[in-house]
Amino acid sequence: MTKITSLADLKKKSEELKRRIDLREKSEHTENLIQIKVAMATCGIASGARETMDYFIEELDKRKIDAVVTQTGCMGYCYAEPTVEVKLPGQEPVVFGYVNTRKAKEIIEKYILNGELVDGIIPQNYQTINDKK
């Protein structure tokens, strides 16, 4: 296994990579893709959102599922961090709470692949203390 120590190595590796993969322009049709947003504010990071996001990127790539994984700010559900919003094409986004890597696996296998809902959904009408008048 060759090491990547310089930009030249990086260039060589990416040329190898280019020969293997077909480049899809993801940005052009994001509405047809699965979109995953990991809440990455202080509360999320402190609860392990970095591992969750890393896991989604790795696992979706491994399973060859076309998806955009990105981050968002605090959604106000700090008690349930790490929280993740999953939007399947043509459907309303769903927010899941307490998403560690185990939960992430369940979300991929059940919700993303089979459309089956899993436990831990944060209902849309949830209000934070600050919202309540």
Partner: peptide, 28 residues
């Protein structure tokens, strides 16, 4: 910016590119 020059038209956020960047940083 240097990484983008090195990888050409590959997207910077491609999982494999991210792994390569990570390896490059760790090595150094």
């Amino acid at each position: 910016r240097q990484v983008k020059d090195a990888i050409g038209d590959l997207p910077l956020n491609h999982p494999e590119v991210l792994r390569m960047c990570s390896a490059f940083i760790i090595e150094n």
